[in-house]
């Protein structure tokens, strides 16, 4: 046991910069994923809730549902491979940029989950709120802007931070393609030293510190939002 502890100190002493770089890539990849995933997810959510109808079917809603089902119903690793090989075929310039390919895959993946977070957040607003606003004479758009969205954001924001936490953990799968994230650094270090447990413990603690602080942050935001009611 004490040997492991001594080794951890040694590994950290020699490779701390690698772990720090890995953390940087993990956070960058996660931030890109959540930011663009949220924007794309918003569009998907709007499509899914669209009431536009032709011949008794809602084309936008069906397309969005299909998209969400495919994203959520297939493994992330499969999606990573898919985009990793597909994108360079479509855009040759991406051949050398695997980080971008992986980021695109993660964005698409996250957008499926974010779309459901947004839709659920909006639908969780009491139906009576919509009726009250409409009965005062507001149109649908005004009701969304003044009444529904401000209340839905209180449901959506904390869930979005949790999604951020999920994404940080999921980016570890991107190490399959050696994109420089924390998990990639683990592979580098363990390959160089023939040590497995020690670097795993190190990156595990780093992941834990980041996700725990975010979760704490989420609950603080949540409390802040509740207080203004």
């Amino acid at each position: 046991m004490s040997l492991i502890f001594e080794n951890i100190i040694k590994v950290l002493d020699k490779y701390w910069l690698l772990f720090l770089t890995g953390l940087g890539y993990t956070l960058l990849l996660s931030a890109i994923t959540v930011f663009f995933g949220a924007i794309l997810g918003l569009f998907v959510a709007i499509m899914k809730m669209s009431k536009f109808t032709i011949l008794k079917i809602k084309p936008f809603s069906i397309i969005a549902s299909l998209y969400i089902e495919i994203i959520r119903g297939t493994p992330l690793l499969l999606q990573l491979y898919f985009f990793y090989f597909l994108l360079p075929m479509l855009i040759p310039a991406l051949e050398m940029n695997k980080f971008a390919c992986i980021a695109v895959a993660l964005v698409f993946n996250s957008s499926g989950y974010v779309a459901e977070i947004i839709r659920a957040g909006i639908e969780a607003v009491d139906k009576g709120q919509m009726e009250a606003a409409r009965s005062l004479g507001l149109n649908g758009r005004q009701t969304m802007k003044k009444i529904i969205i401000p209340q839905a954001i209180k449901n959506i924001l904390p869930a979005l931070v949790n999604e951020f936490v999920m994404v940080i953990k999921e980016t570890s799968l991107a190490s399959t393609f050696f994109v420089g994230d924390l998990m990639t650094q683990y592979k580098v270090v363990s390959g160089a030293l023939y040590l497995v447990i020690e670097p795993l413990i190190i990156i595990g603690i780093i992941y834990l510190i980041v996700t725990y602080s975010l979760s704490k942050g989420a609950s603080i935001i949540e409390r802040g939002l509740k207080a203004s009611e």
């Binding site: 009491d126 009576g128 709120q129 009726e131 009250a132 606003a133 409409r134 009965s135 005062l136 004479g137 507001l138 149109n139 003044k146 009444i147 401000p150 209340q151 209180k154 203004s228 009611e229």
Partner: peptide, 29 residues
Amino acid sequence: DKHRQKMGMVFQLFNVFPHMTVKENITMA
């Protein structure tokens, strides 16, 4: 929407707007 502006409605479950102050509830519409 124009017609509804001339018909006030009061609901069983109040449906006041929880994210607005009492005054804002009245002035919003």
